[in-house]
């Protein structure tokens, strides 16, 4: 795959829950393209379909219609095992809370996708330590989640989302449960990772956090507004970091 190819492509994607008279359209049709090194923020009211979009982008859910491609791979052509492998190697998640397994230390939490992928314990721990250093938590590697503050836990989650070869981070309101200082620190980390060539899609309610993104998209009733059906077009609403 060439280095300028999109890391994430959603093509006329729709997600409908239920069937017949009980069918509820949760999303779509929407299209979105995320380039390498790009940080895209998605804003919108509750129930707009933001989390559904992230679940589809991360192979946690299947679209009713349309195509999703991650790093050039069409998710519809992948088996369950291949989708699991994709989650280990290409896509990382950060949720609003409860991101970490309480029984594992910070280092073990970060090393988890690598170990699940078959990497040796020593190598996995090494990479986890490096990832924790990148989020400036190297000294807390052996602490359990209970012993970390909310902001520190989210930084561990970000470290895990970008550990190993993963290129795409999907963050669902990662700063929602944090104070403003911790929230800003998380956004700085995300921005730094994207500046280093990785990509991220950030769902947020907070305009100051969305301002860290290269693009901000608004989702309402399952569709992008102001951006037309294709959010990858230049017509999308752009918000500068300084906004």
């Amino acid at each position: 795959m060439n280095s300028h190819a999109p890391i994430l492509e959603l093509e006329s994607v729709t997600r409908v829950h239920g069937a017949g008279a009980r069918a509820v359209r949760a999303l779509g049709p929407v299209s979105l393209t995320v380039a390498p090194g790009e940080l895209v923020a998605i804003m919108g009211p509750s129930g707009a379909g933001k989390s559904t979009l992230l679940a589809l982008a991360g192979a946690l859910d299947e679209p009713s219609e349309g195509r999703v491609r991650v790093a050039g791979v069409d998710l519809a052509t992948q088996s369950r095992a291949q989708l699991a492998a994709l989650r280990r190697r290409a896509v990382g998640y950060v949720f609003q809370d409860l991101n970490l397994l309480p029984g594992l230390t910070a280092a073990e939490n970060v090393a988890l996708p690598l170990e699940l992928d078959g990497l040796g314990l020593a190598r996995a721990r090494e990479e986890a330590a490096a990832a924790l250093e990148r989020v400036r938590l190297g000294t807390l590697a052996q602490r359990f989640p209970d012993e970390l503050s909310g902001g520190e836990q989210q930084r561990v989650a970000i470290a895990r989302a970008f550990v190993g070869p993963r290129k795409l981070l999907l963050a669902d309101e990662p700063t929602g449960a944090l104070d403003s200082v911790s929230g800003e620190m998380c956004m700085r980390l995300l921005r730094a990772q994207c500046d280093a060539g990785r990509s991220a899609v950030l769902v947020t309610h907070d305009a100051t956090h969305a301002a860290w993104a290269d693009r901000v998209l608004y989702l309402r009733d399952g569709r992008f507004v102001d951006a037309g059906p294709d959010a990858s077009s230049p017509a999308v609403l752009r918000a500068g970091r300084s906004a």
Binding site: R80, A81, A84, R87, L100, L101, L112, L116, D117
Partner: peptide, 10 residues
Amino acid sequence: GLVGANGATA
């Protein structure tokens, strides 16, 4: 679910 999101198979 979190383990699955990180790539563990069933």
